[in-house]
Design a binder for these strands. Sequence first.
DNA 1: CTTGGAAAGTCAACATAGCTGACATAAAAT
DNA 2: ATTTTATGTCAGCTATGTTGACTTTCCAAG
Lengths: 169, 169
Amino acid sequence: MTTGSPGTQGGESLLFLTDEQLRKGIEAMFFAYRAFTADPDRILENYEYGRAHHRAIHFINRQPGLTVNTLLTMLGVTKQSLNRVLRTLVEDGLVEARVGRKDKRERNLFLTTKGAELERELSDAQRARMRSAYRAAGPAAVAGFRQVLEAMMDPEIRRHYQSIRDTNS
Amino acid sequence: MTTGSPGTQGGESLLFLTDEQLRKGIEAMFFAYRAFTADPDRILENYEYGRAHHRAIHFINRQPGLTVNTLLTMLGVTKQSLNRVLRTLVEDGLVEARVGRKDKRERNLFLTTKGAELERELSDAQRARMRSAYRAAGPAAVAGFRQVLEAMMDPEIRRHYQSIRDTNS
DNA sequence: CTTGGAAAGTCAACATAGCTGACATAAAAT
DNA sequence: ATTTTATGTCAGCTATGTTGACTTTCCAAG
Protein backbone atom coordinates (compact mmCIF):
# COMPACT_ATOMS: atom_id res chain seq x y z
CA MET A 1 0.00 0.00 0.00
CA THR A 2 2.70 2.45 0.92
CA THR A 3 4.28 4.38 -1.88
CA GLY A 4 8.00 3.96 -1.90
CA SER A 5 10.46 6.82 -2.03
CA PRO A 6 9.76 8.96 -5.10
CA GLY A 7 13.09 8.23 -6.75
CA THR A 8 12.19 4.59 -7.14
CA GLN A 9 9.11 5.43 -9.18
CA GLY A 10 11.12 6.21 -12.25
CA GLY A 11 8.69 8.95 -13.35
CA GLU A 12 9.52 12.63 -13.56
CA SER A 13 7.06 14.20 -11.15
CA LEU A 14 5.16 11.64 -9.16
CA LEU A 15 6.33 13.60 -6.14
CA PHE A 16 2.76 14.71 -5.60
CA LEU A 17 1.85 11.09 -4.82
CA THR A 18 4.23 10.54 -1.92
CA ASP A 19 2.78 9.48 1.39
CA GLU A 20 3.80 12.81 2.85
CA GLN A 21 1.88 14.68 0.16
CA LEU A 22 -1.13 12.47 0.69
CA ARG A 23 -1.02 13.00 4.43
CA LYS A 24 -0.87 16.74 3.95
CA GLY A 25 -3.91 16.44 1.72
CA ILE A 26 -5.73 14.49 4.42
CA GLU A 27 -4.93 17.15 7.00
CA ALA A 28 -5.92 19.92 4.63
CA MET A 29 -9.31 18.26 4.14
CA PHE A 30 -9.83 17.95 7.87
CA PHE A 31 -8.88 21.51 8.76
CA ALA A 32 -10.61 23.11 5.82
CA TYR A 33 -13.82 21.19 6.40
CA ARG A 34 -13.87 22.34 9.99
CA ALA A 35 -13.58 25.96 8.91
CA PHE A 36 -16.14 25.34 6.18
CA THR A 37 -18.82 24.28 8.66
CA ALA A 38 -17.87 26.72 11.41
CA ASP A 39 -19.72 29.79 10.10
CA PRO A 40 -23.12 28.19 9.55
CA ASP A 41 -22.76 26.30 12.82
CA ARG A 42 -22.35 29.58 14.64
CA ILE A 43 -25.53 30.93 13.07
CA LEU A 44 -27.47 27.76 13.78
CA GLU A 45 -26.73 28.12 17.49
CA ASN A 46 -29.10 31.10 17.53
CA TYR A 47 -31.90 28.89 16.30
CA GLU A 48 -32.63 25.44 17.64
CA TYR A 49 -31.25 23.75 14.57
CA GLY A 50 -28.08 21.81 13.77
CA ARG A 51 -25.90 20.95 10.85
CA ALA A 52 -28.37 18.32 9.67
CA HIS A 53 -31.06 20.97 9.23
CA HIS A 54 -28.65 23.12 7.27
CA ARG A 55 -27.86 20.31 4.85
CA ALA A 56 -31.53 19.55 4.27
CA ILE A 57 -32.30 23.22 3.67
CA HIS A 58 -29.37 23.54 1.29
CA PHE A 59 -30.47 20.75 -1.00
CA ILE A 60 -34.15 21.62 -0.89
CA ASN A 61 -33.18 25.10 -2.00
CA ARG A 62 -30.99 23.72 -4.77
CA GLN A 63 -33.57 21.30 -6.09
CA PRO A 64 -37.02 22.63 -5.19
CA GLY A 65 -39.60 19.86 -5.31
CA LEU A 66 -37.17 17.03 -4.77
CA THR A 67 -38.59 13.96 -3.06
CA VAL A 68 -37.71 12.67 0.38
CA ASN A 69 -36.04 9.68 -1.18
CA THR A 70 -33.78 11.79 -3.37
CA LEU A 71 -32.82 13.94 -0.43
CA LEU A 72 -32.09 10.76 1.53
CA THR A 73 -29.63 9.62 -1.10
CA MET A 74 -27.92 12.98 -1.26
CA LEU A 75 -27.51 13.26 2.48
CA GLY A 76 -26.54 9.64 2.97
CA VAL A 77 -28.48 9.16 6.19
CA THR A 78 -31.36 6.94 7.23
CA LYS A 79 -34.92 8.00 6.71
CA GLN A 80 -35.48 8.01 10.48
CA SER A 81 -32.65 10.44 10.92
CA LEU A 82 -33.80 12.69 8.12
CA ASN A 83 -37.42 12.48 9.19
CA ARG A 84 -36.65 13.91 12.60
CA VAL A 85 -35.00 16.89 10.96
CA LEU A 86 -37.62 17.33 8.27
CA ARG A 87 -40.48 17.15 10.73
CA THR A 88 -39.19 20.04 12.79
CA LEU A 89 -38.59 22.09 9.65
CA VAL A 90 -42.14 21.48 8.44
CA GLU A 91 -43.62 22.16 11.89
CA ASP A 92 -41.70 25.41 12.12
CA GLY A 93 -42.90 26.47 8.69
CA LEU A 94 -39.53 26.49 6.93
CA VAL A 95 -40.27 23.61 4.60
CA GLU A 96 -43.42 22.62 2.78
CA ALA A 97 -44.03 18.97 1.86
CA ARG A 98 -46.53 18.73 -0.97
CA VAL A 99 -48.12 15.43 -1.91
CA GLY A 100 -46.78 14.32 -5.27
CA ARG A 101 -48.85 15.25 -8.28
CA LYS A 102 -48.17 12.13 -10.28
CA ASP A 103 -47.28 9.68 -7.52
CA LYS A 104 -49.23 10.54 -4.40
CA ARG A 105 -46.94 8.50 -2.17
CA GLU A 106 -44.15 10.96 -2.79
CA ARG A 107 -43.63 14.23 -0.99
CA ASN A 108 -42.14 17.11 -2.93
CA LEU A 109 -40.14 19.41 -0.69
CA PHE A 110 -40.01 23.19 -0.99
CA LEU A 111 -38.67 26.01 1.13
CA THR A 112 -41.21 28.51 2.37
CA THR A 113 -40.36 32.20 2.41
CA LYS A 114 -39.17 31.79 5.99
CA GLY A 115 -37.11 28.76 5.00
CA ALA A 116 -35.56 30.64 2.12
CA GLU A 117 -34.59 33.42 4.51
CA LEU A 118 -32.67 31.06 6.77
CA GLU A 119 -31.10 29.41 3.75
CA ARG A 120 -29.90 32.78 2.59
CA GLU A 121 -28.44 33.67 5.98
CA LEU A 122 -26.59 30.36 6.23
CA SER A 123 -25.33 30.23 2.69
CA ASP A 124 -24.27 33.87 2.72
CA ALA A 125 -21.86 33.05 5.51
CA GLN A 126 -20.64 29.87 3.88
CA ARG A 127 -20.25 31.47 0.48
CA ALA A 128 -18.38 34.40 1.97
CA ARG A 129 -15.66 32.06 3.19
CA MET A 130 -15.67 30.10 -0.02
CA ARG A 131 -15.49 33.27 -2.09
CA SER A 132 -12.60 34.59 -0.07
CA ALA A 133 -10.72 31.31 -0.49
CA TYR A 134 -11.49 31.19 -4.21
CA ARG A 135 -10.36 34.75 -4.69
CA ALA A 136 -7.14 34.18 -2.78
CA ALA A 137 -6.31 31.02 -4.72
CA GLY A 138 -7.38 32.12 -8.18
CA PRO A 139 -9.37 30.46 -10.99
CA ALA A 140 -6.79 27.82 -11.91
CA ALA A 141 -6.51 26.64 -8.33
CA VAL A 142 -10.29 26.53 -8.05
CA ALA A 143 -10.52 24.32 -11.11
CA GLY A 144 -7.99 21.93 -9.55
CA PHE A 145 -9.81 22.02 -6.25
CA ARG A 146 -13.03 20.96 -7.93
CA GLN A 147 -11.32 18.26 -9.97
CA VAL A 148 -9.73 16.60 -6.95
CA LEU A 149 -12.92 16.73 -4.90
CA GLU A 150 -14.92 15.22 -7.73
CA ALA A 151 -12.40 12.43 -8.13
CA MET A 152 -12.67 11.73 -4.44
CA MET A 153 -16.45 11.20 -4.42
CA ASP A 154 -18.13 7.86 -4.73
CA PRO A 155 -19.24 7.43 -8.34
CA GLU A 156 -22.95 7.31 -7.64
CA ILE A 157 -22.79 10.48 -5.59
CA ARG A 158 -20.64 12.14 -8.22
CA ARG A 159 -23.46 11.69 -10.70
CA HIS A 160 -25.89 13.32 -8.31
CA TYR A 161 -23.42 16.11 -7.75
CA GLN A 162 -23.00 16.77 -11.44
CA SER A 163 -26.71 16.65 -12.11
CA ILE A 164 -27.50 19.54 -9.79
CA ARG A 165 -28.37 22.51 -11.94
CA ASP A 166 -28.67 26.13 -11.01
CA THR A 167 -32.35 26.65 -10.29
CA ASN A 168 -32.12 30.12 -8.74
CA SER A 169 -31.45 33.62 -9.99
CA MET B 1 -23.54 39.53 0.11
CA THR B 2 -24.75 38.00 -3.11
CA THR B 3 -22.52 38.36 -6.13
CA GLY B 4 -24.35 40.00 -8.98
CA SER B 5 -24.50 38.59 -12.46
CA PRO B 6 -20.98 38.09 -13.82
CA GLY B 7 -21.32 40.59 -16.59
CA THR B 8 -21.70 43.42 -14.13
CA GLN B 9 -18.33 42.69 -12.56
CA GLY B 10 -16.44 44.28 -15.40
CA GLY B 11 -13.53 41.87 -15.01
CA GLU B 12 -12.50 39.29 -17.58
CA SER B 13 -12.98 36.00 -15.73
CA LEU B 14 -14.58 36.44 -12.35
CA LEU B 15 -16.98 33.75 -13.51
CA PHE B 16 -15.45 31.42 -10.94
CA LEU B 17 -16.82 33.65 -8.18
CA THR B 18 -20.50 33.45 -9.11
CA ASP B 19 -22.91 32.18 -6.51
CA GLU B 20 -23.51 29.11 -8.63
CA GLN B 21 -19.80 28.30 -8.68
CA LEU B 22 -19.56 28.86 -4.94
CA ARG B 23 -22.54 26.62 -4.31
CA LYS B 24 -21.01 23.89 -6.42
CA GLY B 25 -17.87 24.23 -4.35
CA ILE B 26 -19.89 23.90 -1.15
CA GLU B 27 -21.53 20.74 -2.45
CA ALA B 28 -18.22 19.34 -3.63
CA MET B 29 -16.79 19.81 -0.16
CA PHE B 30 -19.74 18.06 1.42
CA PHE B 31 -19.76 15.04 -0.89
CA ALA B 32 -16.01 14.66 -1.03
CA TYR B 33 -15.63 14.88 2.74
CA ARG B 34 -18.21 12.16 3.15
CA ALA B 35 -16.28 9.86 0.84
CA PHE B 36 -13.06 10.88 2.52
CA THR B 37 -14.21 9.63 5.93
CA ALA B 38 -16.12 6.61 4.68
CA ASP B 39 -13.20 4.19 4.33
CA PRO B 40 -11.71 4.66 7.80
CA ASP B 41 -15.19 4.67 9.31
CA ARG B 42 -15.82 1.25 7.82
CA ILE B 43 -12.61 -0.08 9.36
CA LEU B 44 -13.34 1.48 12.73
CA GLU B 45 -16.62 -0.43 12.92
CA ASN B 46 -14.59 -3.59 13.42
CA TYR B 47 -13.00 -2.11 16.49
CA GLU B 48 -14.90 -0.23 19.17
CA TYR B 49 -13.56 3.11 18.03
CA GLY B 50 -14.97 6.06 16.14
CA ARG B 51 -13.84 8.93 14.02
CA ALA B 52 -12.62 10.85 17.05
CA HIS B 53 -10.16 8.05 17.85
CA HIS B 54 -8.93 8.08 14.30
CA ARG B 55 -8.22 11.79 14.38
CA ALA B 56 -6.29 11.53 17.64
CA ILE B 57 -4.25 8.61 16.30
CA HIS B 58 -3.52 10.47 13.09
CA PHE B 59 -2.03 13.52 14.77
CA ILE B 60 -0.14 11.58 17.42
CA ASN B 61 1.46 9.64 14.59
CA ARG B 62 2.30 12.82 12.73
CA GLN B 63 3.80 14.60 15.70
CA PRO B 64 5.05 12.00 18.15
CA GLY B 65 5.45 13.46 21.62
CA LEU B 66 2.94 16.27 21.15
CA THR B 67 1.19 17.44 24.28
CA VAL B 68 -2.48 17.00 25.09
CA ASN B 69 -2.95 20.74 24.78
CA THR B 70 -1.48 20.87 21.31
CA LEU B 71 -3.65 17.98 20.24
CA LEU B 72 -6.63 19.78 21.72
CA THR B 73 -5.97 22.82 19.54
CA MET B 74 -5.53 20.72 16.43
CA LEU B 75 -8.73 18.76 16.94
CA GLY B 76 -10.76 21.75 18.08
CA VAL B 77 -12.67 19.92 20.81
CA THR B 78 -12.89 20.27 24.57
CA LYS B 79 -10.43 18.47 26.81
CA GLN B 80 -13.29 16.47 28.31
CA SER B 81 -14.24 15.19 24.91
CA LEU B 82 -10.68 14.40 23.96
CA ASN B 83 -9.96 12.86 27.32
CA ARG B 84 -12.64 10.24 26.92
CA VAL B 85 -11.12 9.20 23.61
CA LEU B 86 -7.54 9.37 24.82
CA ARG B 87 -8.28 7.34 27.94
CA THR B 88 -9.64 4.40 25.99
CA LEU B 89 -6.67 4.53 23.64
CA VAL B 90 -4.23 4.48 26.57
CA GLU B 91 -6.19 1.74 28.35
CA ASP B 92 -6.20 -0.37 25.21
CA GLY B 93 -2.47 0.09 24.79
CA LEU B 94 -2.55 2.04 21.52
CA VAL B 95 -1.22 5.28 22.94
CA GLU B 96 1.41 5.96 25.56
CA ALA B 97 1.22 9.18 27.61
CA ARG B 98 4.64 9.96 29.04
CA VAL B 99 5.03 12.56 31.75
CA GLY B 100 6.83 15.58 30.33
CA ARG B 101 10.58 15.63 30.82
CA LYS B 102 10.87 19.35 31.38
CA ASP B 103 7.34 20.17 32.54
CA LYS B 104 5.95 17.25 34.46
CA ARG B 105 2.36 18.51 34.15
CA GLU B 106 2.42 17.88 30.48
CA ARG B 107 1.84 14.53 28.85
CA ASN B 108 3.72 13.67 25.70
CA LEU B 109 1.72 11.34 23.51
CA PHE B 110 3.14 8.49 21.46
CA LEU B 111 1.68 5.60 19.52
CA THR B 112 2.63 2.13 20.72
CA THR B 113 3.42 -0.58 18.20
CA LYS B 114 -0.21 -1.65 18.39
CA GLY B 115 -1.32 1.95 17.90
CA ALA B 116 0.95 2.39 14.92
CA GLU B 117 -0.56 -0.74 13.38
CA LEU B 118 -4.08 0.66 13.55
CA GLU B 119 -2.85 4.00 12.28
CA ARG B 120 -1.35 2.25 9.31
CA GLU B 121 -4.52 0.32 8.54
CA LEU B 122 -6.66 3.44 8.71
CA SER B 123 -4.34 5.72 6.80
CA ASP B 124 -3.67 3.12 4.12
CA ALA B 125 -7.34 3.17 3.30
CA GLN B 126 -7.61 6.92 3.42
CA ARG B 127 -4.46 7.47 1.41
CA ALA B 128 -5.57 4.99 -1.21
CA ARG B 129 -8.61 7.12 -1.98
CA MET B 130 -6.57 10.30 -1.85
CA ARG B 131 -3.93 8.83 -4.12
CA SER B 132 -6.50 7.70 -6.63
CA ALA B 133 -8.08 11.16 -6.68
CA TYR B 134 -4.69 12.85 -6.97
CA ARG B 135 -3.66 10.58 -9.79
CA ALA B 136 -6.91 11.15 -11.66
CA ALA B 137 -6.71 14.92 -11.31
CA GLY B 138 -2.99 15.40 -11.87
CA PRO B 139 -0.30 17.47 -10.15
CA ALA B 140 -1.56 20.90 -11.23
CA ALA B 141 -5.05 20.18 -9.92
CA VAL B 142 -3.58 18.89 -6.67
CA ALA B 143 -1.66 22.11 -6.18
CA GLY B 144 -4.86 24.08 -6.68
CA PHE B 145 -6.75 21.78 -4.34
CA ARG B 146 -4.23 22.44 -1.60
CA GLN B 147 -4.22 26.17 -2.21
CA VAL B 148 -7.97 26.53 -1.91
CA LEU B 149 -8.15 24.36 1.21
CA GLU B 150 -5.39 26.35 2.87
CA ALA B 151 -7.10 29.61 2.04
CA MET B 152 -10.27 28.27 3.60
CA MET B 153 -8.72 27.44 6.99
CA ASP B 154 -8.78 29.75 9.96
CA PRO B 155 -5.41 31.52 10.13
CA GLU B 156 -4.33 30.04 13.47
CA ILE B 157 -5.09 26.54 12.30
CA ARG B 158 -3.35 27.20 9.00
CA ARG B 159 -0.15 27.88 10.90
CA HIS B 160 -0.50 24.59 12.74
CA TYR B 161 -1.19 22.86 9.45
CA GLN B 162 1.87 24.31 7.80
CA SER B 163 4.11 23.53 10.76
CA ILE B 164 3.48 19.79 10.60
CA ARG B 165 6.64 18.20 9.30
CA ASP B 166 7.18 14.71 8.01
CA THR B 167 8.43 12.75 10.99
CA ASN B 168 8.18 9.27 9.49
CA SER B 169 10.01 7.29 6.88
C1' DC C 1 9.12 30.27 50.18
C1' DT C 2 4.65 31.06 49.18
C1' DT C 3 1.20 31.59 46.10
C1' DG C 4 -1.14 32.25 41.64
C1' DG C 5 -2.25 30.15 37.70
C1' DA C 6 -1.49 26.77 33.98
C1' DA C 7 -1.86 21.85 32.56
C1' DA C 8 -4.09 17.93 33.10
C1' DG C 9 -7.50 14.69 34.71
C1' DT C 10 -12.13 13.49 36.34
C1' DC C 11 -17.21 13.39 37.31
C1' DA C 12 -21.86 14.54 36.13
C1' DA C 13 -25.38 15.93 33.13
C1' DC C 14 -26.91 17.05 28.82
C1' DA C 15 -27.71 17.68 23.38
C1' DT C 16 -27.27 16.41 18.67
C1' DA C 17 -27.43 13.40 15.29
C1' DG C 18 -26.33 9.30 13.65
C1' DC C 19 -27.89 4.09 13.90
C1' DT C 20 -31.16 -0.45 13.97
C1' DG C 21 -35.50 -2.66 14.28
C1' DA C 22 -40.33 -2.87 14.12
C1' DC C 23 -44.51 -1.38 12.48
C1' DA C 24 -48.34 1.58 9.92
C1' DT C 25 -50.40 3.68 5.96
C1' DA C 26 -51.27 4.85 1.37
C1' DA C 27 -50.72 4.21 -3.27
C1' DA C 28 -48.56 2.35 -7.23
C1' DA C 29 -47.35 -1.74 -9.76
C1' DT C 30 -47.83 -6.45 -10.90
C1' DA D 1 -55.82 -9.26 -5.10
C1' DT D 2 -51.30 -9.11 -3.77
C1' DT D 3 -46.87 -7.21 -3.53
C1' DT D 4 -43.80 -3.50 -3.53
C1' DT D 5 -42.59 1.23 -2.77
C1' DA D 6 -42.50 5.74 -0.42
C1' DT D 7 -43.14 7.69 3.58
C1' DG D 8 -43.84 8.35 8.49
C1' DT D 9 -43.32 7.04 13.31
C1' DC D 10 -41.96 4.87 17.85
C1' DA D 11 -38.46 3.08 20.83
C1' DG D 12 -33.90 2.49 22.15
C1' DC D 13 -28.96 2.67 21.45
C1' DT D 14 -24.25 4.92 20.49
C1' DA D 15 -20.74 8.33 19.49
C1' DT D 16 -19.24 12.63 20.18
C1' DG D 17 -19.74 16.95 21.17
C1' DT D 18 -20.99 20.52 25.05
C1' DT D 19 -20.82 23.14 30.07
C1' DG D 20 -19.73 23.37 34.80
C1' DA D 21 -17.42 22.09 38.91
C1' DC D 22 -13.68 20.26 41.19
C1' DT D 23 -8.89 18.21 42.18
C1' DT D 24 -4.02 17.43 41.61
C1' DT D 25 0.34 18.66 40.05
C1' DC D 26 3.83 21.76 39.63
C1' DC D 27 6.14 25.84 37.20
C1' DA D 28 7.28 30.44 37.89
C1' DA D 29 6.84 35.02 39.67
C1' DG D 30 6.43 37.82 43.69
